[in-house]
Design a protein around this nucleic acid. Structure first.
Length: 574
RNA sequence: CGGGAUGUAGCGCAGUCUGGUUAGCGCGUUUGACUGGGGGUCAAAAGGUCGCAAGUUCGAAUCUUGUCAUCCCGACCA
């Protein structure tokens, strides 16, 4: 490719709207352009990278016996009504009507579509297990797209679905898929990707892992033990908290005028937040009230609470709703509540501590010396605490480290959620019908591209791994009108192309600095510089992106040297 | 949906508080010359309904109201 013809200009200054490195460089390097919030067009450089990422994914999916298919973006609502998701998924699902008034939607994932396909094509245990995958557009009407390509509304995703006759078979395949994912992210040149335990959320199912590209600009918070044995999303992370119990003292009501917050009460009584019990009121989608109680120094983890209660949505209750169940906001107590009107869920930190300060359900009063075992019975005790940095790892006990990650992929053991509701069944050896057991496996393609930049760039631009770089070699011709430089560069360009090297050739005759800055933004791993300075001695300069060192190579040996350097480079990602 | 910010040439910005003839600057673009190893110099040129709408005013980029768009934080999120 000649730079003089390449569509997509490099931009010298940071675009106003870009904050993260990947967003800046995607725009500055001419990889993509934003069309609307969370909606992008890819320019030739970006399209090329995306194609290469997709090819790596495709090879690895084929390697674990995947069969590629292509399903539509537009689906009829009736398909999603079968699974129940037409109702259960919120505004993230873009719904619309076609000209006949029929309800349609833009698919945000393809469980329904793949089940629709599979249930007519596969009916016998003899045909299972099977995995179908596609690399295709998804649309999610995100409340807030952000960070360039990191969180968008329209995006390309590789989504795969496996079908099995037994949980055992699913688990075995899940492990193969996990291995394939590890290979994919290595081949894509990501430097730090962790597979972590995650919450399975709206997908249903039980076991799931997220693949997190560690980056300070990631949206998810993850906790990792120092030796890496424990890795979990903050949504489900837990810790080996230690509590000590002291002999219970007598319950005592104290006057605490105007002290509503944990900090105020603790300070007023000369105690620490961990000597108090905090009351947090939630309501679920059906307006049932939940009283969550946790030690004053912890925060309630709504995901854990929601999972425990098996409710998809929790919202904070307002003061009116709190009063309606006989509790006093700011001074709420678990002690004198009408259990018919409110469900109490207690965190272990409360059950394992002693002599806590809790509300008295009376304005301006608290109780001293609340002891769970003595004072409260018949309520649920579980872990609803949010892990904090430094809390002890549940496996090793070492202080947990906090990191930010971009979710580039995930894998789920779905089970029979979709096959049961949508009647995707097979006949076993005895002619008996069973729902297929499913797994699903996703990778965000554009997000992967952005994540590679986040993990691999310098002040001047991306440093692409050769496996997904837009080109393998960047050829710069300095002063092409002098001393046969242009002619030599033209010949080298042809020779390298004939040798199977993918070359981008800067034939524009710009100033050296101008070309070098553009080359840095394009981020190709190897650079060749042809100039009168070295050409007089029959030499060409050869350097790596991101390194200062320049090697002089003989013109005669150029093609072989470059070929072997490129081949060596690929080997690093195997 | 809550909080914050920003919309002026392809890009980045100034001008707005305190209204006043023809709206500026840098980069980029086009033409020419000189240059030639980290975004060079000189000269000339093209490029704008100041996000949109209504209002106030003799006069609005500037003041008022509304509206739309974009970004950031939060809420939400396979």
């Amino acid at each position: 490719m000649k730079m003089s013809q390449l569509v997509g200009k490099r931009i010298k200054e940071d675009p106003r709207d870009a904050v993260t490195p990947s967003h800046k460089f995607i725009l500055r390097g001419g990889y993509a352009r934003q069309v609307s919030t969370g909606i992008f067009s890819l320019l030739p450089l970006g399209k090329k990278i995306v194609d290469r990422i997709e090819n790596v994914i495709r090879e690895e999916m084929n390697r674990i016996d995947g069969q590629e298919v292509l399903m539509p973006v537009v689906l009829p609502a009736e398909l999603w009504e079968e699974s129940g998701r037409y109702q259960s998924v919120g505004q993230e699902l873009l719904r619309f009507k076609d000209r006949n008034g029929k309800d349609m939607l833009l698919a945000m994932t393809h469980e329904e579509a793949v089940v629709h396909l599979l249930r007519t094509e596969v009916n016998s245990y003899k045909q299972l297990p099977v995995m179908l995958y596609q690399i295709q557009t998804k649309y999610r009407d995100e409340a807030r797209a952000r960070g360039g390509l990191i969180r968008v509304r329209e995006f390309t995703m590789k989504d795969a679905y496996s079908f099995h006759t037994s949980q055992d078979c699913l688990v075995k395949y899940y492990e193969r898929a996990h291995e394939a994912y590890v290979r994919i992210f290595k081949r894509l040149g990501m430097k730090n990707v962790l597979s972590i335990e995650s919450n399975s959320g709206m997908m249903g199912g039980k076991v799931s892992h997220e693949f997190m590209a560690v980056s300070e600009h990631g949206e998810d918070t993850i906790f990792v033990s120092p030796d890496g044995t424990y890795r979990a999303n903050r949504e489900i992370a837990t810790a080996a908290w230690k509590y000590t119990k002291e002999p219970a003292k007598a319950l005592q009501k104290v006057h605490t005028p105007g002290k509503e917050s944990i900090e105020d009460v603790a300070a007023f009584l000369g105690l620490k937040p961990e000597n108090t019990g905090k009351a947090v009121f939630y309501r679920d989608g059906e307006d049932n009230l939940i009283f969550a109680m946790i030690r004053g120094d912890f925060e309630v983890n709504e995901t854990k609470l929601g999972n425990f209660l098996k409710v998809p949505e929790l919202a904070f209750a307002n003061d009116e709703q709190i009063r309606a169940v006989g509790a006093v906001p700011g001074f709420a107590s678990p002690l004198d509540l009408d259990r018919k009107k409110v469900r109490i869920v207690v965190d272990r930190s409360i059950a394992e501590s002693s002599n806590l300060v809790v509300g008295a359900n009376e304005a301006d009063y608290h109780y001293l010396n609340f002891n769970f075992d003595r004072d409260l019975n018949g309520v649920d005790v579980t872990d609803i605490a949010t892990v904090r940095e430094g809390d002890p790892c549940p496996v090793t006990g070492a202080p947990l480290q906090l990191a930010r990650g971009i979710e580039v992929g995930n894998i789920f053991q779905l089970g029979t959620k979709y096959s049961e509701s949508m009647d995707c069944r097979y006949l076993d050896e005895n002619g008996k019908s069973h729902p297929m057991i499913m797994g699903c496996y996703g990778i965000g393609v554009g997000r992967s591209m952005a994540s590679v930049i986040e993990q691999s760039h310098d002040d001047y631009g991306p440093i692409w791994p050769i496996t997904i770089a837009p080109y393998e070699v960047h050829l710069c011709s300095l002063t092409p009108n002098k001393d046969g430089v242009g002619e030599t560069a033209d010949k080298i360009y042809r020779d390298l192309k004939n040798a199977g090297i993918d070359v981008i050739y800067d034939d524009r005759g710009e100033k050296a600095g101008f070309m070098f800055n553009d080359a840095d933004l394009i981020g190709v791993p190897f650079r060749l510089i042809i100039s009168p300075k070295t050409l007089a001695e029959g030499k060409i300069e050869f350097k790596r992106r991101g390194e200062k060192d320049v090697i002089l190579i003989d013109l005669a040996a150029l093609v072989d040297t470059v070929k072997s350097a490129v081949a060596d480079e690929y080997r690093k990602y195997e």
